[in-house]
Design a protein around this nucleic acid. Structure first.
Lengths: 209, 209
DNA sequence: CAGGTTTCGTATCGATCACTATGGATAATT
DNA sequence: AATTATCCATAGTGATCGATACGAAACCTG
């Protein structure tokens, strides 16, 4: 049942679950959750329906596992940028420029899976749409946390609204995702990111200064 | 065939096509093109399938007519902002604040139909996705045109990249659409818009000054 | 009123959707 | 070798998809 621990007996699996999950992830990334049919997954993963269902339970579980894999393999730039021991301005710069690169990688679907996966959904897929929304909210919260840290360190003005600015940055990144999907090049996305950086407030005074 | 000109004979239509189109538009806005089924449309429009197909040809044509209606009835703020006889900065301010309001109207789906309608699509619906992309591109082009006018008038620095800045603004609006879909309030969207405005360059010198 | 035209309501159409029942094949365990 | 467990391939499940065939009903023109 679990594809991470070795089975104790029985016929061994004739395919690599991680490779199959990668193929599924890219398909979901390109077409979104609902518009990706089992027939498409079957062909892209090179598997029969029973193989897919035995390994990944059902389409919804497969998608959730694809989200986890996407988070682990495609958007490490975000955590890197937010956790790097650099100034807040530099961290945000790395975040936006990292997104410019990650959203326009050659050979990959444009934009971010968390945005493309299911912006709109049928009532039956509402749970999936909510899951993606939670991912987006978590990203915004991570940005807000970094901004709060920066404000506490004196990198940002004391009166800056951390939540408001995080919502701006998360919004810009979501907008970059759509621009990428519309064919924007990495250079165009970098320019967009640089432009967005201009909204950053000037360095705040250290407390007590 | 055309619902705009009076039929010359035959049994009269038992419903108002514009009201039905409105209902369809809101459903597409909420759930997107593909995730909106005929069954949902039937119920929301209060019509039988033959009534829908007789009046609107097919689902794709219905969606395209919904896009036109959306453009005419929901996002007039954009044309108003870009054509108002005000400074470029004020025009952009009205554009972004207008979006904040339009994307979070009570009783309406959050965000913009041009974004929610089909960010990702199945291969069969690629034409619809392309149509929406064209609408988004047209919006960006309209912004760029206004910026070019402003730069020529001395409202903006001569070295400003009109295309780059238009891509930023269009991206911010798309990002606002997603934030609205994620439940952002009109106040939060206004703050986002105001933040984005901070990236606007200072007024350029009049030529020759 | 007769003829022509369009829309009406009812009852579906074939295609595709996500998903699975069945039984043979291949491994570790005993 | 016998048992047990898992996976494989084939084929097909009911449900829903977008879209229609059919004939009766309701209007305009002559």
């Amino acid at each position: 049942m679990d594809n991470l621990e070795k089975a104790r007996g029985g016929r061994p699996r004739a395919f690599d679950p991680d490779r199959a999950l990668d193929a599924a992830m890219h398909l979901f990334w390109e077409h979104g959750y609902e518009a990706t049919s089992l027939a498409m997954l079957r062909e892209a993963m090179g598997l029969t329906p029973p193989q897919i269902y035995n390994a990944f339970t059902d389409k919804e579980t497969l998608f959730r596992k694809a989200l986890i894999r996407y988070h682990q393999t495609e958007i490490g730039f975000a955590l890197d940028a937010l956790s790097a021991p650099v100034s807040t301005r530099e961290a945000i710069r790395r975040l936006l420029l990292g997104a410019a690169e990650a959203y326009s990688r050659p050979g990959k679907p444009g934009g971010c899976l968390f945005v493309s996966g299911a912006l709109a959904a049928s009532p039956q897929a509402q749970a999936i749409a909510d899951e993606l929304k939670a991912y987006r909210k978590a990203s915004e919260a991570a940005i807000a946390e970094r901004l709060a840290k920066g404000r506490a360190a004196g990198d940002l003005p004391e009166n800056l609204s951390v939540e408001g600015f995080a919502k701006y940055l998360a919004g810009v990144m979501n907008g970059m995702s759509i621009q990428a999907r519309d064919g924007a090049s990495v250079e165009e996305l970098r320019i967009l990111a640089q432009t967005a950086l201009a909204a950053l407030p000037a360095e705040g005074q250290k407390r007590g200064a």
